[in-house]
Design a protein around this nucleic acid. Structure first.
Lengths: 227, 227, 227, 227
DNA sequence: CATGAATGAGCATTCATTCAT
DNA sequence: CATGAATGAATGCTCATTCAT
């Protein structure tokens, strides 16, 4: 009855549908110009639809952006969790998730910057504070990265820093680099990604005697968790 | 004939001048509401001047923001270089600069967010790409942090990563944390700052014989082998 | 070729026809929200038809309303003339017609307010000026009330006031009261209606010796004199 | 500080001020086309000002109309009360007030229709129900006409009809006639006005033996109240 | 015939910029 | 120099109307 839908239906990804055209145009433009820098008329033109058409699919501009964020954020989370194994070592789980962010950013630059824009908007700030995130069908628990950090700290594999600091030490560099990559300031190949991730791990790992044993390289799997 | 000046005159820091009132109001408001969320009329009111007055000092809104960015960015750089000693060790110079960013962000949240806003705008992106930055009277050389990294790599104290990656590994976490701090999501005390900076250093430092045993290859994260 | 019809076909009162559904919805909505406050889409929804369907029956929104007005106005006139006997006394004919307006308004509040809305619109004003009204199959003669007034004046039963004044003195109070009734500001029972009509009659009647005789009026709601 | 003012300042009637130009244009246009039929752009053009200028004086379109209504309604009430003497007979007070309405309508056709439009809008309906009217500096008591009716009923000079009916019997014809006059359907001279008012009085007056004496003409002051 | 998705002109409102004072 | 009233282009949004299905 109502075409405005918060549910993410399968038709949303029909690449030819007007709705999807609007979404893609919005992501592209807002990722570049920001919410207030992107008039509806510009979205309509980029999508190749009439301005009024947008309002058949979304109640207003706010809703348009919020709904796209939810959808994009969901896909983003699902991408991270693809082939994710909670039984792997802390380090491997860390690397899996972080590499996922890298890959996602490089392969979906518009979506990545869109998420960034959203997080840095007043909207996003309150989102973060209220832990509002979309559930995507999962149990609404914390981002898996936070779980990894918590588990790692429990096992004394990860430094006893505030959670925010741990996140900053990993997400910070990744986001920074991906944005530089999107801006064309650096070419992100697998080698650079891998070495950067290794560096991130070194930043947060708890150095123990075991870790300091000769031959122990920062990037070698340690077995500190199951002694 | 034209009172608009790209040059940074000495009067700009006169705290009572209208120009400075306008600048301070703009920083405060744009850091909070963003460029498009801050009308000229709001700036005029916050600054306690007439709207038309702003146009005596700045050609238009774009120029206003660009000029403020240049000025703020200069002060920021100068702050970092305060008591900076190029003869210190790589690590100390690194810590001096990074701690400076932290301090600046915590003590000047409006300016910090303003710079952030600017960097994330289309304007900022092109700026970064064109290395346009203001010279601030210095010799136009690279940011000192980049010099430290280059020197550190020459001395094999710092990993052989792309410069952009090294910057990301240090600036990324700092900016991330300062923003969280400004948003009230974390309380940044000296302990947290110090341990975070130590972590950043661990992320970028080259482990040598001096530091470690030979054969240690920081850039090989390939370790998934489980013996 | 053109399904739009200015003629009032017999199907218009078929209660199940789409045309009639549209008309009823329009009357209900416009009487409440006015012409500009009632979008076509709302009419379509209320009528349970597609928006495009309305344009099969009416050329455009203006035509829709004009045609409905003609139809409603016709039915209104016919209602007034029901059981109307031109051989009755002036006073009885007057009371018959006026009571008819009261009854019609109370029983058909939507239609009544619709007519009102229309009369007060620029459209209605020009209509009144041009004496354009629909003929309803009658001989296009004046409204019967005007005939009664003319006849009454000829018989010196009704004051020698301008016709417009006589109409105002009768229609004015009735419309005013019915609107208050519809708005819920007064409960219109038969007693109030009768005494109001008696008052209207007193306003326009020519006082002669004949008229002043006691008990002279058949439907005498006029018992107010206390002998 | 704030140019939006609910207070009715003396400058409002400065005929050359933009504010007054806007008000006059609004009254003229809304009286003819109604609220929804009068775009802001049309008001701006009619007033000879830019569209944005209107918003310097009024918060939004609703406020514009509401404020004008208050002002016009105040002037209207003051006009009615000009030279009004509460010590006159019921009939004279009645005639004074009703004649005032006539005069006001004939001399201020735009304002008169504007008030009409407003009363017939959803806004006006709630106004009537809530007795919200502006106080105009008076004590906020009922319209004087209602007081006259109440007093007249107490003295058995006026019929014992519901208040709404009495108002309908007087205001109804007057409004009806004035509208016809404005529409050009009738020429309202003093004779017509006087005889119509006399008729209105006959409609509502309580007929006693005294009143029935020959020679008692509607327009002559009767002394029925203080026998 | 009937539909409702699509359209774009039109609306209320905001805001960067100008200019008379 | 400084002001802020005035402007009109631009924005988000609505809605009468069309037309492919």
């Amino acid at each position: 009855m109502n075409v405005h839908s918060t549910e993410i239906s399968s038709t949303q990804t029909d690449p030819g549908s007007k709705r999807e055209l609007i979404i893609q145009a919005t992501i592209r433009l807002i990722s570049e110009y920001g919410f207030h820098g992107t008039p509806i008329s510009m979205i309509a033109q980029e999508a190749g639809v009439g301005a009024g058409t947008i309002y058949r699919y979304f109640k207003d501009k706010d809703t348009l952006v919020l709904e796209i964020f939810k959808q994009v954020h969901c896909v983003f989370k699902k991408t991270l969790l693809h082939e994710y194994d909670a039984n792997q070592t802390i380090r491997d789980r860390f690397l899996h998730l972080c590499r996922g962010i890298f890959q996602y950013g490089v392969q979906n630059p518009y979506e990545f910057k869109f998420i960034e824009q959203f997080y840095n908007s007043p909207y996003g700030t309150s989102l973060r504070r209220e832990k509002f995130f979309c559930n995507c069908g999962d149990t609404g628990q914390d981002l898996p990265l936070e779980q990894v950090f918590a588990a790692g700290q429990a096992q004394q594999v990860i430094k006893d820093l505030p959670l925010a600091a741990l996140i900053a030490l990993t997400i910070g560099p990744i986001v920074f680099l991906v944005k530089d990559s999107i801006a064309g300031l650096i070419q992100l190949d697998q080698t650079t990604i891998n070495s950067t991730l290794a560096a991130c791990w070194e930043a947060i790992q708890q150095e123990t005697d075991t870790n300091r044993q000769p031959g122990s390289t920062p990037s070698s799997p340690s077995t500190e968790e199951k002694p």
